[in-house]
Protein backbone atom coordinates (compact mmCIF):
# COMPACT_ATOMS: atom_id res chain seq x y z
CA UNK A 1 0.00 0.00 0.00
CA UNK A 2 2.18 2.76 1.18
CA UNK A 3 0.79 6.20 1.08
CA UNK A 4 2.86 8.66 -0.88
CA UNK A 5 4.37 11.78 0.56
CA UNK A 6 5.85 14.53 -1.58
CA UNK A 7 8.60 16.39 0.26
CA UNK A 8 9.34 19.79 -1.23
CA UNK A 9 12.60 20.90 0.39
CA UNK A 10 16.00 22.14 -0.80
CA UNK A 11 18.32 21.29 2.08
CA UNK A 12 19.89 17.87 1.26
CA UNK A 13 20.53 16.94 4.88
CA UNK A 14 17.00 17.76 5.94
CA UNK A 15 15.62 15.78 2.99
CA UNK A 16 17.67 12.82 4.07
CA UNK A 17 16.50 13.06 7.66
CA UNK A 18 12.79 13.28 6.79
CA UNK A 19 13.04 10.59 4.21
CA UNK A 20 14.62 8.31 6.77
CA UNK A 21 11.96 9.00 9.41
CA UNK A 22 8.94 8.62 7.11
CA UNK A 23 10.24 5.66 5.06
CA UNK A 24 10.86 3.76 8.26
CA UNK A 25 7.19 4.30 9.13
CA UNK A 26 6.12 2.91 5.78
CA UNK A 27 5.64 5.97 3.61
CA UNK A 28 6.72 6.31 0.10
CA UNK A 29 8.75 9.53 0.08
CA UNK A 30 9.29 11.46 -3.08
CA UNK A 31 11.22 14.75 -3.12
CA UNK A 32 11.34 17.92 -5.09
CA UNK A 33 13.85 20.76 -4.45
CA UNK A 34 12.93 23.59 -6.83
CA UNK A 35 10.21 26.10 -5.92
CA UNK A 36 9.41 27.11 -9.47
CA UNK A 37 8.30 23.66 -10.60
CA UNK A 38 6.93 22.44 -7.27
CA UNK A 39 3.23 23.03 -8.01
CA UNK A 40 3.47 21.09 -11.22
CA UNK A 41 5.23 18.30 -9.35
CA UNK A 42 2.27 18.08 -6.96
CA UNK A 43 -0.17 17.83 -9.84
CA UNK A 44 1.97 15.24 -11.63
CA UNK A 45 2.69 13.04 -8.66
CA UNK A 46 -0.69 13.46 -6.92
CA UNK A 47 0.67 12.50 -3.49
CA UNK A 48 -1.50 11.76 -0.46
CA UNK A 49 0.37 14.38 1.54
CA UNK A 50 2.71 17.27 0.82
CA UNK A 51 5.46 18.43 3.19
CA UNK A 52 6.26 21.92 1.97
CA UNK A 53 9.20 24.08 3.00
CA UNK A 54 8.69 27.84 2.89
CA UNK A 55 12.19 28.93 1.89
CA UNK A 56 12.69 27.40 -1.52
CA UNK A 57 14.87 28.50 -4.35
CA UNK A 58 13.05 30.58 -6.98
CA UNK A 59 9.60 30.47 -5.37
CA UNK A 60 8.33 30.63 -1.85
CA UNK A 61 6.26 27.87 -0.25
CA UNK A 62 3.48 30.34 0.40
CA UNK A 63 3.08 31.08 -3.29
CA UNK A 64 3.07 27.42 -4.13
CA UNK A 65 0.42 26.63 -1.53
CA UNK A 66 -1.74 29.55 -2.64
CA UNK A 67 -1.65 28.23 -6.18
CA UNK A 68 -2.48 24.69 -5.08
CA UNK A 69 -5.41 25.75 -2.91
CA UNK A 70 -6.91 27.67 -5.85
CA UNK A 71 -7.47 24.39 -7.68
CA UNK A 72 -10.64 22.57 -6.49
CA UNK A 73 -9.19 19.11 -6.76
CA UNK A 74 -6.23 20.17 -4.61
CA UNK A 75 -8.16 22.26 -2.11
CA UNK A 76 -8.40 19.44 0.39
CA UNK A 77 -4.90 18.04 -0.07
CA UNK A 78 -3.16 17.76 3.31
CA UNK A 79 -0.16 20.10 3.34
CA UNK A 80 2.34 20.22 6.19
CA UNK A 81 4.33 23.43 6.08
CA UNK A 82 7.83 23.69 7.43
CA UNK A 83 9.69 26.90 8.07
CA UNK A 84 12.95 27.94 9.63
CA UNK A 85 11.54 31.38 10.25
CA UNK A 86 9.79 30.87 13.54
CA UNK A 87 7.92 34.09 13.71
CA UNK A 88 4.27 34.31 14.65
CA UNK A 89 3.29 36.14 11.49
CA UNK A 90 4.69 33.27 9.41
CA UNK A 91 2.38 30.82 11.18
CA UNK A 92 -0.60 33.11 10.73
CA UNK A 93 0.11 33.57 7.07
CA UNK A 94 0.45 29.84 6.58
CA UNK A 95 -2.88 29.13 8.27
CA UNK A 96 -4.62 31.87 6.32
CA UNK A 97 -3.61 30.49 2.96
CA UNK A 98 -4.68 27.02 3.92
CA UNK A 99 -1.81 25.01 5.39
CA UNK A 100 -3.18 21.92 7.14
CA UNK A 101 -0.34 21.93 9.66
CA UNK A 102 2.53 24.27 10.32
CA UNK A 103 5.80 23.22 11.90
CA UNK A 104 8.85 25.23 12.85
CA UNK A 105 12.32 23.88 12.26
CA UNK A 106 13.93 22.25 14.10
CA UNK A 107 11.28 19.73 14.98
CA UNK A 108 11.47 16.44 16.78
CA UNK A 109 11.20 13.30 14.72
CA UNK A 110 8.27 12.09 16.80
CA UNK A 111 6.45 15.33 16.24
CA UNK A 112 6.93 15.09 12.50
CA UNK A 113 5.76 11.49 12.45
CA UNK A 114 2.69 12.24 14.53
CA UNK A 115 1.72 15.17 12.38
CA UNK A 116 1.99 13.18 9.18
CA UNK A 117 -0.01 10.26 10.62
CA UNK A 118 -2.73 12.54 11.87
CA UNK A 119 -3.05 14.34 8.57
CA UNK A 120 -3.39 11.09 6.65
CA UNK A 121 -5.98 9.67 9.01
CA UNK A 122 -8.20 12.62 8.17
CA UNK A 123 -8.00 12.03 4.52
Amino acid sequence: MGKRVLLIEDEPNIIEAIRFILSRDGWVVETHADGATAAQAVRDKAPDLVVLDVMLPNRSGYDILTELRAEPELAALPVLMLTARGQKKDRELAERIGASRFMTKPFSNAEMLAAVRELLENV
Partner: peptide, 21 residues
Protein backbone atom coordinates in the same frame (compact mmCIF):
# COMPACT_ATOMS: atom_id res chain seq x y z
CA UNK B 1 16.65 38.64 12.15
CA UNK B 2 14.40 36.48 10.04
CA UNK B 3 17.36 35.56 7.86
CA UNK B 4 19.53 34.78 10.88
CA UNK B 5 16.75 32.64 12.25
CA UNK B 6 16.58 30.70 9.02
CA UNK B 7 20.33 30.29 8.76
CA UNK B 8 20.54 28.99 12.32
CA UNK B 9 17.49 26.74 12.26
CA UNK B 10 18.33 25.00 9.04
CA UNK B 11 21.51 23.24 10.23
CA UNK B 12 19.90 22.74 13.62
CA UNK B 13 17.03 20.85 11.98
CA UNK B 14 19.40 18.31 10.46
CA UNK B 15 21.40 18.04 13.64
CA UNK B 16 18.29 17.45 15.73
CA UNK B 17 16.75 14.94 13.36
CA UNK B 18 19.87 12.84 13.01
CA UNK B 19 20.88 13.05 16.62
CA UNK B 20 17.37 11.77 17.57
CA UNK B 21 17.78 8.95 15.10
Amino acid sequence: LSQISHELRTPMTSIRAFSEI
